[in-house]
């Protein structure tokens, strides 16, 4: 899956996260995560993000995440939503989303 348009999902509110995706200029996948709890949970957040993107087979795009202390389920949901919006994908493949 490729990010073909700019898209946003989530919010800046506590326990949530904001995911911004945009097309890559050089066909690479770049991920940036900032978080209120980056010291404590940075690795875990990044792990969930990477895993979610991998399951969706995202090959290129720029993913910028502002985490506000979200739990893993919210990270998965918001990353998936932003990617599906950015890839203009209307069909839901539940295997990939699980």
């Amino acid at each position: 899956m490729r990010i073909i348009t700019e898209a946003v999902a989530g919010s800046l509110e506590s326990s949530d996260l904001l995911v911004k995706v945009s097309p890559s200029r050089d066909k690479t996948l770049e991920i940036y995560v900032t978080s209120d709890v980056i010291e404590q949970f940075g690795t875990q957040i990044r792990h969930v993000v990477d895993d979610t993107l991998k399951r969706l087979a995202v090959t290129d795009g720029l993913i910028v995440i502002e985490d506000k202390g979200a739990l893993d389920y919210a990270i998965r949901a918001r990353v998936q939503t932003a990617v599906l919006r950015g890839a203009a994908c209307k069909e839901l493949n539940w295997e990939q989303l699980s």
Binding site: L12, L18, K20
Partner: peptide, 21 residues
């Protein structure tokens, strides 16, 4: 309060809808 962050989020969505990312 949490209002500020809601405001920020709403603003971002309105800007997005107008094509400003």
């Amino acid at each position: 309060t949490s209002l500020s962050l809601q405001l920020g989020g709403e603003l971002l969505k309105v800007a997005m809808e107008r094509g400003h990312f």
